[in-house]
Simulated assay, not measured.
Amino acid sequence: MSAPLNRRTFLRATTIAGGTTAFSGALWHQAFAGPAQPGPGPYGPLLAADGNGLRLPKGFTGRVVARSMQRVPGTRHTWHPAPDGGACFRDGDGWVYVSNSEVPLVGGASAVRFAADGTVNSAYRILNATTLNCAGGATPWGTWLSCEEHDYGLVYETDPMGNRAARAHPAMGRFKHEAAACDPERQVVYLTEDQPNGCLYRFRPTTWGDLSEGALEVLLGTDTGPVRWAQVPNPRLWITPIRDQVPGAMRFNGGEGCYYAGGICYFTTKGDNRVWAYDAAAERLDLTYDDDLVTNGEPPLTGVDNITGAFSGDLYIAEDGADMEINLITPDGTVTPFLRVLGHDESEITGPAFSPDGTRLYFSSQRGKSGFAAGTDGYTYEVAGPFRR
């Protein structure tokens, strides 16, 4: 008797046959009718590693901006351990890159301020005395949402410039937060949950721009296709976990990064190596990438984690372990490596974010070359070059 089909074989078969068991056509940018497939990237192959162990395409250069437990060059500020989620904010002619610290009790977040020419001007703390600050998201009004990744975790709203004290927002739910992405059209914030049976949430503030009060909702559905939302009854204080309070809540295997652009909320799930696309106007869920649905060679993207996007519409997805790559997915449905970090085999790539002008990409290797769990060997990088627009 022949062996039963495993999940990858089954999904590939339905894809090749044009079936709709796994999905009914990805909506990502309305550009292609199935999850992304491997192919040549817009920047060509990766070159040999530079002096920092970065393999980059031709025309791109990299540098180390900060090292955990060491002073940021040109400042008196010591960079935090285990750098994780990050974002960039405009600051006059320059910009600020913020980064979370995914360690217990003293996690918080820090920032590096850059001049217009990329010179580091200063570095400083923007959040203290919080725990396991994993990912987060930028708001349209210029704040950074730093998310705690534990069962009673909170979302903290911080000032990237370091002028205003951070504020906790219990109304956004107490759960194992991962990332956040703001949708200014519908005036909601999408939130991922890092649990093997976690959910996707959205927060509807009473007043857009003020996250202190509002309604937390959870996505309902069974698969790709039409979905809907329902309000969580007890998001602040609970005996029953938030993800179990609403019957029919859709389950996701380890929610990670979250990014919103052009009416679509993209989010990743590490347990099944997927990049999802939620069409907010149509209230429909589809797949942008699934390593089990790769029909053209081996999947280049595994260990999916943090996600961001470029002016061009390309998505950039960081890997947790795997090949220590940042892969990009183009609007025409090609997935391909953009960079690789060598010699950091026990680490993960975190915090990808573009400078406001789109010419520089920041990210970190959370545990660096040592792989030490406390993250005291973390590296934060900058890659500059001809990113397409």
Results as ranks from 00 to 15, higher is better:
T376D: 15
D272V: 15
E213I: 03
D279M: 05
N296V: 15
C88S: 10
V294P: 11
G108C: 09
G136V: 04
A111S: 08
N100D: 11
Y97E: 03
P205H: 12
Y259Q: 09
T206W: 03
A322Y: 15
L285P: 00
T224C: 15
R67E: 11
K369W: 14
A36M: 02
Y362T: 04
P331H: 06
V98Y: 01
D305T: 08
T206D: 15
T9Y: 04
G173N: 01
F354W: 04
L191M: 14
L54I: 06
G271Y: 08
T192D: 06
G44Q: 06
A249Y: 06
D314Q: 08
P241N: 05
P81D: 13
E256P: 05
I264L: 12
G25T: 00
S24L: 09
G153M: 05
G257K: 01
Y201H: 07
L237W: 11
P38R: 10
G53A: 10
G262D: 08
D84I: 02
R243P: 13
E193K: 05
P40Y: 13
D244E: 15
G225T: 02
L191R: 04
N197R: 14
W144H: 08
L145D: 07
P196A: 12
A22R: 01
Q231H: 07
F387M: 01
V189K: 01
L27C: 11
G153P: 05
D357M: 00
G39Q: 04
V335W: 07
T158K: 07
A280F: 12
A384E: 09
A384C: 14
G92Y: 10
G351F: 09
R7K: 14
K270R: 11
P73C: 05
P40I: 13
G257W: 03
P247N: 02
S24A: 14
T350A: 15
L46G: 05
M69H: 07
P104W: 10
P331A: 05
A123C: 04
R164K: 14
G333S: 08
P140W: 14
V335N: 08
T302W: 13
W238H: 08
T350K: 10
A87S: 15
L11I: 08
R174V: 10
P300G: 08
D117L: 14
A166I: 06
R236L: 11
G44C: 06
A230T: 03
F387H: 00
S99K: 03
Q187D: 06
K270M: 10
V304L: 07
N296E: 15
E185Q: 13
D314K: 04
Q366L: 15
A353F: 03
V335I: 12
F89V: 04
G209H: 04
G358V: 09
F114I: 02
I349L: 15
V106T: 12
G221D: 03
L54T: 02
G51Q: 08
N133A: 06
I264C: 13
V304F: 03
D279N: 10
I16G: 00
R76C: 08
A36F: 07
G59D: 07
A123E: 00
P226Y: 02
T240M: 13
F338Q: 00
P205T: 01
E346Y: 13
A179G: 13
H77M: 11
G351W: 02
V96I: 15
H29P: 09
V218K: 02
C182K: 00
N133R: 00
S355Q: 01
V98M: 03
R228A: 12
E213H: 12
R236T: 13
V112Y: 04
M324E: 15
G297C: 09
L211C: 12
